[in-house]
Design a protein around this nucleic acid. Structure first.
Length: 320
DNA sequence: AACTGAGCCAACCGCACTAAA
DNA sequence: GTTTAGTGCGGTTGGCTCAGT
């Protein structure tokens, strides 16, 4: 069990932090900031390793930390995000302002996991659905909506209704009326502008598909607008791509003729850059949170419109 | 009152990744 | 290309608290 590289000083204190130590760290960080954590202990007069200081600051002393009980909305969000990304605590925490990965992890291990495991799986279909899903630890729970999630990787996506009371889940062999995405989006639309799916109120990782659109889905081009980027594809690839998106990988954008170009994520859900070697297309696009519109650096215009009560959505030029 | 076991949670450990030397 | 230091993240540990006996 080797010592950590940052903890090789002779005398480093370990264990719980005293109020005096907290005060020293807060005073130092608020006056000097934290450029290099390894220098913080010495400069702040602490007998701790830099890593310990960093952890203490990030998890407990930061001014924007939100302590206290998790709200039902937060709990739902954690469950949904976990169903998509698994134990990516930092990623989940990024969707809950003021909450830390450590706090969420502890909360999950002590509460949610227990709650979920208390609920027995109700049907063999449910078992099959869960076992074929891309995520882990999967859900049966009692949170006021049916928690069944779908397999992103299966073409044959299973279905439940979003607001159905628990009991027996309702399945069909076609597309899902409910799927969870690890994105901060609001609308999924077809090339004709019809809304195919929208997010749940209070919960942008939960999507509800407009059933009227389902028969068209496999052949229909979808635009997916998030608060922070744009995404398009046919549905089955879409599902895979959205999962890839959650994993931070690259994605493909299709136009109506089926041409595609690569979109690479530049920064965490904020900027998407289109591969210049692809078809003619905007070279750069991102969702501007402040102005609620799509911004382009490539010069080409993207149509932006809002569906009533559904928030912003967008479509891209057919020449793309 | 003393003991014990379970649960919670703050902190630590080790690995992975990145950037700089 | 290799090494090293710094940082971030997920898994795990261990101490504290509290309910039950």
């Amino acid at each position: 069990m080797g010592q950590h590289s940052c903890c090789n000083q002779q005398k480093v204190k370990r264990g719980l932090w005293s109020p005096e130590e907290d005060e020293k760290l807060i005073r130092f960080i608020t006056t000097h900031g934290y450029g290099c954590w390894s220098e913080v202990p010495e400069k702040a007069g602490l007998q701790r390793c830099g890593k310990s200081c960093r952890l203490r600051w990030i998890n407990y002393l930061r001014p924007d930390i939100r302590r206290g009980k998790f709200t039902p909305e937060e709990e739902k969000l954690i469950i949904n995000l976990h169903s998509v990304v698994g134990n990516k605590w930092a990623h989940i925490a990024s969707h809950l302002p003021g909450r830390t990965d450590n706090e969420i992890k502890n909360y999950w291990n002590s509460w949610i996991k227990k709650k979920i495991s208390r609920k027995p799986s109700s049907t063999s279909m449910m078992t099959r659905l869960i076992s074929t899903s891309a995520s882990i630890d999967q859900p049966h729970s009692d949170y006021g909506y049916n928690p069944t999630h779908l397999s992103f990787l299966n073409q044959d996506l299973c279905v439940t209704n979003i607001k159905q009371p628990i009991q027996e889940p309702v399945f069909s062999s076609s597309f899902s009326s409910l799927f969870m995405l690890d994105t901060s989006g609001s609308v999924l639309e077809g090339h004709n502008g019809d809304c195919i799916a929208q997010t749940e109120y209070f919960n942008d990782s939960m999507w509800q598909v407009n059933k009227n659109q389902i028969p068209e889905l496999p052949s229909q081009i979808l635009n997916f607008a998030t608060n922070s980027g744009m995404y398009s594809s046919y549905l089955p690839p879409l599902m895979e791509n959205l999962e890839a998106m959650a994993e931070g990988q690259n994605c493909n954008l299709h136009n109506e003729e089926g041409r595609e170009c690569l979109i690479q994520k530049q920064h965490e859900f904020n900027e998407w850059v289109v591969d210049q070697t692809s078809q003619q297309c905007p070279s750069y696009l991102f969702w501007d949170d402040e102005h609620q519109e799509v911004q382009l650096a490539g010069g080409e215009e993207i149509a932006v419109h809002s569906a009533p009560n559904l928030g912003p959505s967008l479509s891209y030029p057919t020449s793309l």
